[in-house]
Design a protein around this nucleic acid. Structure first.
Length: 825
RNA sequence: GCCGCGGUGGUGGAACGGUAGACACGGCGGACUCAAAAUCCGCUGCCCGCAAGGGCGUGAGAGUUCGAAUCUCUCCCGCGGUACCA
């Protein structure tokens, strides 16, 4: 027994040493052959990798191995998203420099990935905090700046009072900081933005060209939030100013009975000035601006607002309608002002009710019925008609939309327009541990880009990481004070750093040419590898990271630096591994499963294979220690079979693992089962990555081998070698070891097995015999049997007699190779 | 509210419109052992029955079909995203 003892530690150490010494997984950029680019989402290195990382790489590595063995040159690299807040917050607490802590974590990540046996091309390893990397992040910023896609402007921004920094819209969840949970405040600050909104339409349209989970695409579509409508100008006669509004319902223009501006609208105070409403407006605006995003976003609260003391003219009715300021109108969307149509918009209706404003119905059901009076009638379906709308009466809302927009265009007071929910990407962060923005401010020249040949602008060493409402970099006087690259005069450096999402929006490009110190990449390298064929990561990045990366790729394509329009052709979103209690793993719940002790006990292969065996990999699944034992047992059984057969043969036989010719009896059963397993495992790589089904197929093959211990050794060798070959993508060390025991060969150098069609069908099959769709018997039938013969076999099946006697046979349904269903009355 | 995804044994889950529950866990029984662990073998959806066998079963209800977990409609429940976006 002991000589067949499965010792994962020894096996794993052996193969990891081989792969490291021979640099087995490195690829060059030499062209030729089919390529496959497989990438797992860039990990943030903090402490040690957790079990979720292991799932990520178990999936990606299986795909990479399969691609290699199906004739692809595979690029499967690794890197670290190594700038970011946790390391900096840790520095504030402990005084340990973020670089020290981060690099320590990177070491531990690297060690872990090696101990998991992941097939990574380590020659392309990168880390976003290294100057050799962020030099090019800065270069990208400059390119965007040159193209007018990066600009600095004052804006109301989300401010996290705890982290003391600005957040992107996407990092605010329910009015709170995504990271620390503090309630987010609004502040007016000068900030750097990237103009992702310029790409909104393309980001939306090109979703149709990529193979991503539908729900992820839906999330992105909703986030981009395209609305088609019209811009309409409302004139304030008293001040002689036209105010544009955006509306998706120009067909309801005749029902606009008042006009509302956001409290942040720059003209609000000016409009109210000199009117009796002035003081009240001032108070209201001041109050609204101090409200938290949370309070303001509460839809349950009664709508509030204040009359501005002015009116605008409804361009179609010519009526003077009152102007209000109200916090339910948002400055960030549309023009920061709306036409209010209370009869057909819920929010306007609520406001009109609260302030006794007129509600004029301009859309009615076509059948003449009355819509309920206590709510807005919100429909633009074709069973409604315009009313009280002058010449447009009787039109459907759809027709009204077209005709009123055409009329507005003719009159020069409006036009068709599209509005997006997507906001520009705010990248300034008042923090230390990030990529410096390569800009200086000169008294004479203003904003000046740091010339490319002076990159990188290196992050200086500082003593005090404490944020004080400005970047800690601002205190590094030596560094901040510089000379203007344009005029040589005194200048100050930008002290904000970039959002770390900038770093991670292009790393997959850098992998293609990771050691290039002359350029961010050689376009030829990208031509060779891009797009990423398979991207694997968590759904939590469905919006932010994936949208930003798509944006960058489109910009680079426009700059001629890249030939593709999308970074990730195919995306797989893995589910979470939950604690044994079915809850999300967290230190506070005490249900965290650290990978290292598991690996020491069961081996990396067992843990990897178990993770894949937990269920469909895109689903969440709770950890179960005893189920892990089950997968461990499979590997052990496979190893035992291999080592016994090898011992029986007196060692590896180079030609001894081929499919034996003309097997019979138990040998035939095994050969068939092996071919069936090849078919099943292979199919999972082309569909849903249901690797639990693939592993189940290998399990069945192994079980069959245990059931037939006396089958011909040649057939057994073939079956065991096949099982080893098929399990290799999921348990690479064990697969390699067993394959070598039998053949002396390296399994990863063998082509992926293909099923022998001859062995996929038997000469007989079990014919299912039904009466009225209910199973009554099963009989053995020849595989090639014709309908007539099958029908006769079924009608003679003993189990059917009782159900046929005394009944009239109405019809007989025959599915060749499957079943016969006798329909009786 | 809106959008999306789900609901199958004690558990995780299988199942091109064609044998529901593969595979695994757990449970029960057995072999080995002084004993235990490990390992190996068998049984294991529920109900009736000594058995042979029969009945019931994929959230609920209807429909299409020779045949529905699978397709259609209505409803219930759960999960995820999003939410004053004009």
């Amino acid at each position: 027994m002991s000589e067949h003892h499965y010792d994962p530690r020894a096996i794993e150490a052996k193969w990891q040493a081989v792969w490291a010494a021979e640099r087995t997984w490195e690829v060059t950029n030499d062209p030729g052959g089919d390529k496959a680019y497989v990438v797992e989402m860039l990990p943030y290195p903090s402490g040690e990798p957790h079990i979720g990382h292991m799932k990520n790489y178990a999936i990606g590595d299986a795909i990479a191995h399969h691609k290699r063995r199906t004739g692809h040159r595979v690029l499967h690299p690794m890197g670290y998203d190594s700038f970011g807040l946790p390391a900096e917050n840790n520095a504030i607490k402990t005084g340990v420099h973020p670089r020290i802590a981060t690099e320590r974590s990177i070491d531990s990540f690297r060690r872990a990935f090696r101990s998991w046996g992941v097939s990574i091309d380590w020659s392309r390893e990168l880390a976003s905090h290294e100057p050799a990397y962020y030099r090019w992040t800065q270069w990208i910023f400059l390119k965007l700046y040159e193209r007018g896609l990066a600009n600095r402007r004052e804006s109301a921004v989300n401010w996290c009072p705890n982290d003391q920094t600005v957040l992107a819209n996407e990092q605010v969840v329910d009015g709170r900081c995504e990271r620390c949970g503090a309630e987010v405040e609004l502040r007016q600050l000068e900030q750097w933005f990237l103009r992702i909104t310029d790409y909104a339409q393309r980001l939306l349209d090109d979703l149709d060209t990529i193979d991503w989970p539908e729900h992820v695409k839906t999330m992105q579509r909703n986030w981009i939030g395209r609305s088609a409508g019209a811009e309409v100008h409302f004139r304030c006669q008293a001040l002689g100013i036209d105010y544009p509004v955006f509306t998706t319902r120009p067909d309801t223009l005749f029902g606009a009975t008042f006009f509302v501006m956001a409290p942040e609208h720059p003209d609000v105070l000016r409009l109210a000035a000199g009117t009796p409403a002035e003081a009240q407006v001032r108070d209201y605006v001041n109050h609204a601006l101090t409200e938290s995003a949370q309070e303001r976003g509460d839809q349950e609260k009664t709508k509030t607002g204040v009359f501005l003391g002015r009116t605008v003219t409804n361009p179609v009715t010519g009526e003077e309608i009152p102007m209000y300021v109200a916090d339910y109108v948002l400055m960030e969307y549309g023009t920061g002002a709306i036409m209010a149509v209370p009869a057909h918009d819920e929010r306007d209706f609520a406001f009109a009710r609260a302030y006794g404003l007129p509600i004029r119905q301009v859309v009615a059901p076509a059948d003449g019925s009355k819509p309920p009076a206590d709510q807005a009638y919100v429909t633009k379906a074709d069973d409604a008609r315009l009313v009280n709308s002058g010449d447009f009466d009787g039109l459907t809302p759809r027709e009204g939309f077209e005709r009123i927009v055409a009329w507005l265009e003719r009159e020069g007071i409006g036009r068709a327009a599209v509005s997006f929910r997507l906001r520009d990407w705010l990248i300034s962060r008042q923090r230390y541990w990030g990529c410096p923005i390569p800009i200086v401010y000169c008294e004479d020249c203003g904003i000046v880009a740091v010339p490319e040949d002076q990159l990188p602008v290196e992050l200086p060493e500082i003593e005090d990481y404490q944020p004080r409402g400005r970047s800690p970099l601002a205190a590094a006087e030596q560094w901040v004070n510089t000379t203007c690259p344009a005029c040589g005069g005194p200048a100050r450096r930008e002290t904000d750093t970039m959002d770390t999402f900038v770093d991670s929006s292009w790393y997959f490009l850098r992998y293609c040419d990771a050691r290039n110190d002359k350029a961010a990449w050689d376009p030829a390298a990208l031509r060779q590898w891009m797009s990423v064929d398979q991207y694997i990561g968590g759904v939590e990045h469905a919006i932010l990271h994936l949208l930003y990366a798509r944006f960058f790729v489109k910009v680079f394509a426009d700059m001629g630096l890249l030939d593709v329009q999308e970074p990730f052709q195919s995306l797989f979103t893995q589910g979470m591994i939950l604690g044994p209690d079915g809850q999300k793993m967290s230190k506070s719940r005490g249900n965290v499963i650290p990978p290292t002790p598991l690996i020491e006990r069961h081996g990396a292969d067992a843990v990897r294979a178990y993770i894949l065996n937990m269920g469909p990999p895109d689903q969440d699944a709770a950890w179960n220690d005893s189920a892990l034992q089950g997968t461990h047992r499979l590997l052990m059984r496979l190893y035992t079979l291999g080592s016994q057969l090898a011992a029986d043969a007196g060692g590896p036989l180079a030609t001894g693992v081929a499919q034996p010719a003309a097997p019979s009896g138990d040998a035939l059963t095994l050969v068939r089962k092996a071919n069936w397993a090849i078919e099943r495992v292979s199919s999972e790589f082309h569909g849903r990555f249901g690797f639990h089904n693939a592993i189940a197929a290998v399990t069945e093959l192994v079980n069959e081998l245990y059931r037939l211990p006396d089958a011909d050794p040649a057939a057994r060798r073939f079956a065991v070698a096949t099982a080893a070959s098929l399990i290799f993508p999921f348990a690479p060390h064990t697969g390699a070891e067993v394959y070598e025991l039998l053949s002396g060969q390296r399994v990863w150098e063998q082509p992926w097995p293909t099923a022998d069609p001859e062995m996929l069908t038997a000469e007989t099959f079990e014919l299912v015999c039904q009466v009225n769709g209910r199973l009554r018997d099963r009989v053995t039938a020849p595989s090639g049997a014709q309908r007539e013969q099958l029908e006769q076999l079924a009608l003679r099946a003993p189990g059917l007699r009782a159900h046929l006697d005394g009944h009239e046979i109405v019809k007989v349904v025959v599915v060749p190779g499957k079943l016969v269903n006798v329909v009786v009355r």
